[in-house]
């Protein structure tokens, strides 16, 4: 196997670890693999899968609009409820 940097461009472990976690989590629903203390959680897997998978070009594009996106996010959070 050829030499590669440890940290991938998607800042994941070598061998696309997030994909491996997703596959093993699906298998864990069918066959007990062991005590994973609640496992990774599907929402976490989805967010991390998207981040590692397609986050790189998105961040490159969206960093120019960081201030605008941050203020939209803050407004949405405030609208979400008084306890947000």
């Amino acid at each position: 196997m050829r030499k590669r940097p440890i940290t991938s461009k998607q800042f994941d472990l070598p061998g696309r670890e997030i994909g491996r976690v997703i596959r093993l989590s699906i298998l864990n629903r069918v066959l007990p693999l062991g005590n994973l203390q609640g496992g990774p959680g599907w929402r976490c897997l989805l967010v991390l899968g998207v981040l590692h998978g397609v986050g790189r070009p998105f961040f490159r594009l969206l960093v120019r609009y960081e201030n605008q996106l941050t203020s939209i996010y803050r407004r949405l959070r405030r609208r979400g409820g008084p306890d947000q």
């Binding site: 800042f11 976490c44 967010v47 991390l48 981040l51 590692h52 986050g55 790189r56 961040f59 490159r60 594009l61 969206l62 960093v63 960081e66």
Partner: peptide, 13 residues
């Protein structure tokens, strides 16, 4: 740097 923000977003998650 978009890449730095990307890296930190992952760590933060």
């Amino acid at each position: 740097d978009g890449q730095e923000k990307y890296r930190k977003a992952i760590v933060k998650r």
